[in-house]
Design a protein around this nucleic acid. Structure first.
Length: 317
DNA sequence: TCGTGTCAAGATCTT
DNA sequence: AAGATCTTGACACGA
């Protein structure tokens, strides 16, 4: 089976490799007039988009075909202070150029709206904000010319002392999304509330692909092993190559935190389980050392007899 | 120049 | 019922 690796948002190999530049409301409000405020945001966004393009070029040069785009390309895009700002129009060319390189090299691009984006909250305003945030991501992908292949990873959300009810709220909100946006959504098991088995059942019900996070599964599960779950998780992807998330726990007391690098033994142990599915898949490496961790893992994989190196970011196992 | 407190956003645990 | 904590990268300020 062929396994490709990707990494998240920032390149640590490249100088100025972070497309995350932002500002805070507090500092923005020190600027007196609206026009100057917007021009500051505009400048940051332009820098981020230029950095993003550079990072993708670097990825192409290193055979990294999978990448998660930061949610912060356009700073404060969904905050009321920027209401009316047509950033897709302002940065039409920049966004198009990003989409162009993605399409030209068949890159697999996703984004992961952060943990404030919660579709299943009982509070209407929270759900409205979540939907607005999803639209922001959707608009950017549209402006890049990327269809439903560009996915948005979501968690189920909170439990609110009633998991079945909270799952129903997720389903209801999900079904109310516009088609184009709904087709982008893929759902990940989390490290505290919704275990892989529960997210799998949800994904089967609403016919959305499930992203297995192996680390989260180790933090939060209901006793079912991956050996049992993996075939059904992969099946939620249909004919698309499944994608999983992989990270290693930071050693010490906080097991849920991400380590700098990937533990090769844990990774190979997972490969052994996945081997039974005989299915190609992609792995998003979620390590604090970003692309450096990806390359470090590839270097370790070279020593594994069963792993055949295809290129700088892919193996056959 | 370096270290540190702070940041739009929610949920949940602790007091 | 209110406050602390979670978690994260980056900014901006002050030492």
């Amino acid at each position: 089976m062929r396994i490709r690796l990707g990494y998240v948002a920032i390149s640590l190999s490249l100088p100025q490799g972070s497309p995350n530049k932002t500002t805070t409301l507090f500092n923005l409000n020190k600027i007196e007039n609206k026009v100057d405020q917007l021009s500051k945001l505009s400048r940051l966004a332009r820098e981020n988009l230029a950095t993003q393009l550079r990072v993708l070029c670097y990825n192409v040069a290193h055979n990294i075909e999978m990448f998660r785009i930061t949610s912060h390309l356009i700073p404060l895009a969904t905050h009321p202070i920027t209401r009316g700002w047509d950033y897709c129009e302002e940065f039409r060319e920049e966004l198009f150029a990003i989409g162009d390189i993605v399409k030209k090299h068949s890159l697999r691009i996703s984004a992961h709206p952060d943990h404030f984006t919660i579709l299943n909250s009982p509070v209407d305003s929270v759900v409205e904000a979540a939907i607005a945030d999803l639209h922001y991501h959707d608009k950017l992908f549209d402006a890049m010319g990327l269809g439903a292949v560009a996915k948005l990873v979501l968690h189920v959300g909170g439990v609110y002392k009633d998991k079945p009810q909270s799952l129903r709220r997720f389903v209801a909100a999900f079904h109310q999304l516009p088609d184009g946006l709904r087709e982008r959504i893929i759902i990940e098991n989390d490290d505290k509330s919704y275990a892989a088995e529960e997210v799998l059942a949800l994904c089967q019900e609403i016919k959305a692909p499930m992203v297995l996070d192996v680390h989260h599964h180790n933090c939060c599960n209901v006793g079912t092993g991956l050996f049992t779950l993996l075939p059904a998780i992969f099946a939620t992807w249909g004919t698309t190559i499944p994608k999983i998330h992989f990270s290693s726990p930071k050693c010490g007391k906080n097991i849920r935190a991400h380590a700098d690098y990937i533990n090769i033994d844990e990774f190979v142990a997972f490969l052994a389980v996945a081997k039974e599915c005989n299915q190609d898949f992609d792995v998003m490496i979620e390590a604090k050392q970003k692309d450096l961790a990806l390359f470090a893992l590839m270097k370790e994989l070279q020593k594994i007899p069963k792993a055949r190196i295809i290129n700088e970011a892919a193996i056959e196992y």
